[in-house]
Design a protein around this nucleic acid. Structure first.
Length: 850
RNA sequence: GCCCCCGUAGCCCAAUCGGCAGAGGCAGCCGACUUAAAAUCGGCCCAGUGCGGGUUCGAGCCCCGCCGGGGGCACCA
C-alpha cells in the first residue's frame, strides 16, 4: 500500500470546506503535522537511519524488541501504544550512541487467517501477505524505528523450516514426544487446545465451552524445566506481577509419594500428598474417575460396580470444563468395592472413583484425610465416610478449633499431631520430616515435588501452521524428516477444505500425505497435524539476528553478539504463555549448545491497554477509536506523545481521559521555538544565559534517569517545563539570539525525537542540522547541575516555620545556628526550650521543643 | 480460598534515601492581543494523600488491621 495515498486522502478531509487551492498549500510558518509527515517520511525511507549491524560499526550493542503483531487487519490503538513506548526506549539508546537492534516481523500463522480464508474463500497466504503490507505501511508512517532489513514472517517457509529443524532436535532429545491422553477440545474450532488456551473453561479464541477428547498428540516436555523456569526468574528485571503469574502457573509443591498396597493387585500404587504428617488420618482413597487406574480397579470388582463406574466415567467425560471448574458443585463418585492398606497402621481404606481428583496431577490418586482437607471432608460427608482427627489445631487464643464434622470446616493449618502413633506430640514440620524418614526406611515412600505445569501440547488439527516434520512408517514408527529434506512445506490450500472437522485439513491432501520412509524407503505417511503457533514466537527473537541464513536457524556468532534481548516490550496478555514457552525454548537450545545464555528476555516492560470510556474498545460496544482517524486528525507525533504522556506505561490508558489535541498544541509550541531561534548553528553556548543553561542540562540529566526507569510520562513533563522556560527566555528574558536559547531548543529537539520524530526532525532542520535521531544526546556539564543556593526548610516539631537560602555546601553547625535565629523558629518556640535539633544539611532543619 | 498490583485536586498523573503534598497536562475561570473570532501569550481556582491504628523529631512513602478497585491461579491433594 502506498502511504502517500493516505496523505492525499487526509489533506482532502482536513481542508474540507476550504478552496482546493488552499488544500494544496502548506503554511511553512506554522506547525502543520501533515506537512512534516510528507516531508520527512520519504527522507527516512531513503536514509534508513535504524539499520543495525552495519560493517565497521563500533558502537556498543543493545537488543530492544517489541512483541511482533498478528497480521489481522491494520494496526489499532493497542499497537500504537506498544510501538510508541518501545520506540522511546529504542530511540533513546540510539541517541546515547548505541548500535540498537530493533527489529519487527509478523506472527503470521494461526486461526484468524484460516478463519478469514474459510469465510471469504480466499487463500490464507494472500490474505496474510496483504495484511502484512498494510501494517508495514502503517508502521512506517507511525515512524517506528525498526530495522527494515531484518523483517520476518512466521508463515514463510524460510522461517518455519527452522521450527521443523528445532522440532526434530527436540524429538532426538526426547523433548518432543507423542502420547494419548484426554485433551482440551474446542468443538467450534474443531481443534485441540493447550491448557494455556483454555480460559475459564472457554476457548481463548472463540469463547466456546471446551470439552475433553482422548487423542494421541505431540507434546514438548516443558515439565523437565519446571525448576529452572521457577528459579531463574529471580535474576530477571521483570515486574513482580508477571513473575507471580509465572510462579502460579508452574505451581511447584513439595510433599511425599506414599505406596499403598491394594488388595487383589500385585503392584502397590503411589499417591502424592503435601501432608504426609496426616497419614494416620486417612480414612479412604480416591482415584481420578477418568484415569486408567480407576478403570483397572473397577474391572477387578463385581459387575454391578463395574457398570456403575462406567456410567459415572461417561458422565464425567461429557461434562464441560465449565461444570468442572465450578467450585460449588457437589462431590460425586463411585465406590469401587476395592481396598487399599494404609502403610503406617494397616487400616483398610475403601477406594472411590471421583472427578475431584485429577488424572494428570501427581499419580491421579490420593489418600483422603477428611478431617484436615476441605475437599475430602465434603466427599466424606456426601458419602457417609468416617472422619479421623489427627491434628490438634488451635485458634489465636489457644482454644481448640471445633470438630470438622460438626463445623463442616476441615482444620487445614498447623497443629500438634494426635492419634498418630509415633508422631503424637510433634508439630507439622517435625512430623513431616519424621514420617518421610520412616516411609523411606520402610521403602514405602519418599519426599517428592509436583508441578501444576503440564507438558505443552503442540498438535493442532488445522491448516495454517507449521507441518510437524514426522513420517509415520509401519516398520520404523515415528521418523523425523532429515534436515536436508526440510522444509516440509504446506500443500497448496487450493482445493483443500479448511473447515474444521476434527481432523487436520492436511489429511485430505493425499499426494502430500503419501511419502516414503526416510529410514527404510517403504511407503509411509506424513504427520498431518500442524504446530501451535506459540512455537514460532518461542524463538523468533533469535531469527532476527540472522534473517537470511539458509544453513541454520540463526548464526551462533550473531547470537553471541546481540542476544539475549536487553529490553522486551509487550502486553501483559502474554505474561504466561508466550514468555514461559520462550524461556523453555531458550533453555532447551542452551542444552543443545546453540546459545550460551539461560534467559531470552533480561528486562520486560508490559504496557497497559488502551481503553475507551472505561472498557476495552470494540465495534460491538460502539467505543472503538480508529488509529488511522486519530493520526489524520492529530498527527503521528501527537498520538505517540499522548501514549507516552498518559501515565505510567503499565497502567491502562483511557482515551477519554487524555488529549491528543493538547499534545498537538504542545508540539506546535515546541516547534515555534526552533522557528524563533535567532543565533547561528555552532554558536558557543558557554556565553549564553546561565539560568537557561542550567535548566537545559538539568532536564537532560533527569530525562536519562527517567527514561531508563520507564517513567516516560514524567520525562515528557520535563520537556514541557524546558519548553516553557525557553519560551519565557525568548519573550521576556535574554531573547531569541542568546546562545543558551539555541542550546535549549536543540535539547528540546533531541528529547522530542524519542516521542515525536517528525516534529523533532523538522525542528532540527530549522536549526540548521541533519538527522536528529542519531547519537545527538548532548553531553551534560556537571558544573551546570550545581545550584548556587538551595532552600532550606526550617521546621519546628515537623511543621514548616521558615525558610533559608543557603549554600549547598553549608556545614551542619552553621545551618543549625542560622535556623535557630530565624523569626519563624523564635515565634513557634516561644518560651519552650529545645530538646533536640535534627539537621539534614543543606535542605532541612527540624527543631524539637522540650 | 491462595497470590500479585493499585487507591494523591473535578479528571489524567508528579512527589525514587521517610523531609515544603504539586512537576506537567486536561477541564473551568480571568486577563492581554484582536473590530471580532481562532490561534497565541500571561494568570487564577482546586486535595491534605480510601479508613483506623502503630513506628518516628518528621509518614503519601515503613509496619499492622480494615474498605474499595484491577489482575493471576484455583477440586493441583
Amino acid at each position: 500500500m502506498d502511504v502517500s495515498c493516505a496523505f492525499r486522502h487526509r489533506a482532502r478531509r482536513y481542508n474540507s470546506g476550504v478552496t482546493s487551492e488552499a488544500a494544496e498549500t502548506h503554511d511553512t510558518d506554522r506547525y502543520d503535522h501533515a506537512r512534516l509527515e510528507e516531508r520527512w517520511l520519504p527522507h527516512w525511507r531513503r536514509t534508513q537511519p535504524f539499520r543495525s549491524g552495519r560493517e565497521g560499526d563500533t558502537r556498543p550493542t543493545k537488543y530492544v524488541l517489541d512483541m511482533f503483531p498478528y497480521p489481522s487487519g491494520d494496526l489499532h490503538m493497542g499497537h500504537a501504544e506498544a510501538y510508541a513506548l518501545g520506540d522511546v526506549i529504542s530511540r533513546y539508546w540510539v541517541q546515547r550512541g548505541y548500535n540498537v537492534l530493533h527489529p519487527i516481523g509478523w506472527d503470521s500463522f494461526g486461526l484468524p487467517a484460516e478463519n478469514a480464508a474459510i469465510k471469504r474463500g480466499v487463500d490464507p497466504a494472500g490474505w496474510t501477505e496483504d495484511n502484512i503490507a498494510q501494517q508495514r505501511a502503517s508502521m512506517e508512517r507511525y515512524a517506528c524505528s525498526f530495522d527494515w532489513d531484518r523483517v520476518l514472517a512466521t508463515h514463510r517457509p524460510e522461517f518455519y523450516r527452522w521450527n521443523q529443524w528445532i522440532f526434530t532436535r527436540m524429538f532426538e532429545r526426547g523433548l518432543a514426544y507423542r502420547k494419548p491422553s484426554l485433551v482440551n477440545w474446542c468443538p467450534n474450532d474443531q481443534t485441540v487446545l493447550a491448557n494455556e488456551q483454555v480460559v475459564q473453561g472457554l476457548c481463548e479464541r472463540c469463547d466456546t465451552p471446551v470439552t475433553k477428547k482422548r487423542l494421541t498428540q505431540w507434546y514438548f516436555k516443558i515439565t523437565d524445566y519446571a525448576d529452572q523456569l521457577l528459579d531463574d526468574m529471580d535474576e530477571l528485571d521483570w515486574t513482580d506481577r508477571v513473575k507471580a503469574m509465572q510462579r502460579n502457573w508452574i505451581g511447584r509443591s513439595t510433599g511425599a509419594d506414599v505406596k499403598f498396597v491394594i488388595e487383589g493387585r500385585d503392584e502397590p500404587i503411589d499417591i502424592y500428598t503435601t501432608r504426609p504428617d496426616t497419614l494416620y488420618g486417612a480414612t479412604f482413597m480416591v482415584v481420578a474417575a477418568d484415569s486408567e487406574l480407576a478403570a483397572e480397579l473397577a474391572e477387578g470388582a463385581d459387575a454391578a460396580t463395574q457398570e456403575a463406574f462406567e456410567a459415572y466415567a461417561e458422565k464425567v467425560k461429557a461434562s464441560s470444563e465449565i461444570d468442572r471448574l465450578s467450585t460449588e458443585r457437589e462431590k460425586t463418585g463411585v465406590f469401587l468395592q476395592r481396598y487399599a492398606v494404609n502403610p503406617v497402621n494397616g487400616e483398610r481404606l475403601p477406594i472411590w472413583a471421583s472427578d475431584y481428583v485429577l488424572a494428570d496431577y501427581g499419580h491421579g490418586a490420593i489418600m483422603a484425610v477428611p478431617a484436615h482437607d476441605q475437599r475430602d471432608l465434603e466427599f466424606a460427608t456426601a458419602m457417609g465416610l468416617p472422619v479421623q482427627v489427627v491434628l490438634d489445631c488451635r485458634d489465636e487464643d489457644g482454644n481448640p478449633l471445633p470438630d470438622p464434622v460438626e463445623s463442616g470446616e476441615a482444620t487445614t493449618g498447623d497443629g500438634v499431631l494426635v492419634n498418630s502413633g509415633p508422631l503424637d506430640g510433634l508439630a507439622k514440620a517435625e512430623a513431616i520430616a519424621a514420617i518421610v524418614e520412616r516411609l523411606a526406611a520402610d521403602g514405602v515412600g519418599e519426599a517428592t515435588t509436583n508441578y501444576r505445569l503440564r507438558d505443552w501440547l503442540i498438535s493442532r488439527q488445522r491448516y495454517w501452521g507449521t507441518p510437524i516434520p514426522i513420517v509415520h512408517c509401519d516398520a520404523c514408527g515415528e521418523v523425523p524428516v532429515p534436515d536436508d529434506q526440510l522444509p516440509v512445506t504446506l500443500p497448496d490450500a487450493e482445493g483443500l477444505d479448511l473447515k474444521p472437522k476434527g481432523q487436520s485439513p492436511l489429511a485430505a491432501a493425499t499426494d502430500w500425505v503419501t511419502t516414503t520412509c526416510p529410514r527404510c524407503g517403504a511407503a509411509a505417511k506424513r504427520d498431518t497435524d500442524t504446530m501451535d503457533t506459540f512455537v514460532d514466537s518461542s524463538w523468533y527473537f533469535l531469527r532476527y539476528l540472522s534473517v537470511g541464513k539458509t544453513d541454520g536457524p540463526f548464526e551462533p556468532l550473531d547470537a553471541k553478539k546481540w542476544a539475549p534481548v536487553d529490553q522486551y516490550v509487550g502486553g501483559i496478555t502474554h505474561a504466561i504463555l508466550h514468555l514461559l514457552y520462550a524461556r523453555f525454548f531458550t533453555k532447551a537450545l542452551r542444552d543443545m549448545g546453540l546459545v550460551d545464555f539461560d534467559e531470552p528476555f533480561l528486562a520486560l516492560l508490559n504496557q497497559g491497554m488502551v481503553q475507551m470510556d472505561g472498557s476495552a474498545m470494540s465495534k460491538s460496544r460502539g467505543n472503538l477509536v480508529r488509529l488511522s482517524e486519530q493520526l489524520d486528525e492529530f498527527g503521528v507525533d501527537a498520538v505517540r506523545l499522548t501514549m507516552a504522556f498518559a501515565g505510567p506505561p503499565e497502567d491502562d490508558i483511557d482515551w477519554a481521559d487524555v488529549s491528543p489535541g493538547a499534545s498537538s498544541k504542545f508540539l506546535a509550541r515546541a516547534w515555534r521555538l526552533a522557528r524563533d531561534v535567532a543565533s547561528e548553528p555552532g554558536v558557543d553556548p558557554a556565553t549564553g544565559d546561565l539560568e537557561l543553561r542550567k535548566a537545559t542540562h538539568k532536564t537532560l540529566a533527569e530525562t536519562a534517569e527517567l527514561i531508563e526507569s520507564f517513567r516516560f510520562n514524567v520525562a515528557v513533563a520535563r520537556v514541557m517545563e524546558l519548553v516553557n522556560v525557553t519560551r519565557k527566555a525568548i519573550d521576556s528574558g535574554p531573547g531569541a539570539a542568546d546562545p543558551a536559547v539555541r542550546e535549549a531548543v536543540e535539547a528540546v529537539a533531541v528529547l522530542l525525537s524519542l516521542y515525536a520524530p517528525y516534529c523533532a526532525e523538522d525542528m532540527w532542520a530549522l536549526l540548521g542540522n541533519e538527522d536528529v535521531a542519531l547519537g545527538n544526546w548532548p553531553e551534560v556539564d556537571p558544573a551546570l547541575l550545581v545550584e548556587d543556593t538551595v532552600t532550606c526548610i526550617v521546621q519546628v516539631k515537623g511543621k514548616v516555620r521558615d525558610r533559608l537560602e543557603v549554600s549547598p555546601s553549608i556545614g551542619e553547625d552553621e545551618l543549625k545556628e542560622l535556623a535557630l535565629a530565624t523569626d519563624g523558629v523564635k515565634r513557634a518556640l516561644g518560651d519552650a526550650g529545645i530538646r533536640t535539633v535534627i539537621v539534614r544539611a543543606p535542605k532541612l532543619v527540624n527543631v524539637v521543643p522540650a
